[in-house]
Amino acid sequence: MENMKVLVVDDEGDFIELFVKRLKKRQIDIIGVESGYRALDILKKEKIDVVLLDVKMPGMDGIDTLREIKTKYPLIEVIMITGHGSVESGLQGMIHGAYDYVLKPFDLEVLLNKLKKAFERKRLKEKA
């Protein structure tokens, strides 16, 4: 997972704060923001490899943000985070190119493994 840069997007500030702290402890370069708009701003400036994206957010929701990210930066991999597990949004996410889904609350090791796989995929795409 060397050199992987992660962006986490969730409207719950407390969650972001704790999550960023935990991943930094694991030596992962990570930024956290609280909305889809802010996420798109960050992507303009920073070279991000994997985005962790909450499905349910006020304003621009997770699916809209995913669509924007995938149109503008097709190489970036996106993992959707969901608390309620809606099948319809799950299907939409997969159709619009999400790499994976993770249900809240999640086990950190499971998530780290998903991040690793998403990053591996991005590298494979870059080589192709």
């Binding site: 889904y101 494979l124 192709a128």
Partner: peptide
Amino acid sequence: NDPIIQQTDVNALIEDMALLVEKE
């Protein structure tokens, strides 16, 4: 575009999707 091939644990992959539909 061609598929991107990765080594995959299919049981785990299915279980993730099963959990996603289980609530509903």
